[in-house]
Amino acid sequence: MFTEADFSCYASLHDVLQNHSDDFVGIIHENITTTHELLSALYEVLNFPGYFSYNWNALEDCLSDLDWVTQKRVVIVHKSIPKIGNQDYQQYLDVLKTSIESWKPEEEHELLVYFPTFVSA
């Protein structure tokens, strides 16, 4: 079970929408149910290079590089939380967190990730 604290390093919708006109924004559609669907969606919306190999290591490599993107701020917006199973979801969050933290303010890019409001069951 995830808690709101698991999402503390990710952007709020306000952060995403503020000064968004110059951002590179990738919107991940709803109803993602497999890891392959998620990785494919990320490949498409973020224009990953052709060598992307659809695994967590490749995702982290691409999110930590982004040299094909000209905009400073890269934003990933999830329309819903991917339903890919807890283990894969935790791996995805870990990759996102590592990638977000890898970009320093003075570097070429800033990575923001938005998830819809977390609702505890």
Results as ranks from 00 to 15, higher is better:
P105Q: 06
Y54R: 07
D94P: 00
G85E: 07
I84E: 07
P49G: 08
D22E: 15
S102M: 02
T34I: 09
I28T: 04
T35A: 11
I81P: 00
P116Y: 03
T35I: 14
Q87V: 15
E101A: 12
I81H: 11
L13I: 10
I84W: 01
E107R: 07
E101Q: 12
E60Y: 09
K83G: 03
Q87H: 15
L63W: 01
L111D: 02
F52C: 11
G50D: 15
F52P: 07
L38S: 02
N19W: 12
E30F: 08
V16R: 06
D94W: 00
E107D: 08
Y10F: 15
Y43G: 03
S12R: 09
E110D: 06
N31V: 09
I32L: 08
T98M: 09
V75H: 02
D94Q: 14
L38R: 02
V95T: 13
L66A: 01
I27C: 11
I32W: 12
D67W: 09
I81D: 01
N57G: 12
Y10K: 00
D67L: 08
Q91Y: 07
D65C: 08
P105C: 01
Y43E: 10
Q18P: 05
K97I: 12
Y10W: 02
Q87N: 14
S80W: 06
F118S: 00
K104M: 07
E107N: 02
N55W: 05
Q18F: 15
E37T: 04
V77A: 01
D15K: 11
F118V: 01
I100D: 03
D94V: 03
A11W: 05
A41L: 09
E30T: 15
D22V: 15
K79W: 09
E30W: 04
S40P: 02
V113W: 03
Y54S: 09
K83I: 09
L38G: 02
L46S: 01
V77R: 11
N55S: 13
I100V: 15
T33W: 12
Q71K: 06
N57P: 04
I32M: 06
E110M: 05
K79I: 02
S12E: 04
K83L: 10
H109Q: 08
I81Y: 15
F118C: 02
T35G: 03
V45G: 04
P116L: 08
G85N: 10
E44P: 00
V25E: 03
D61W: 07
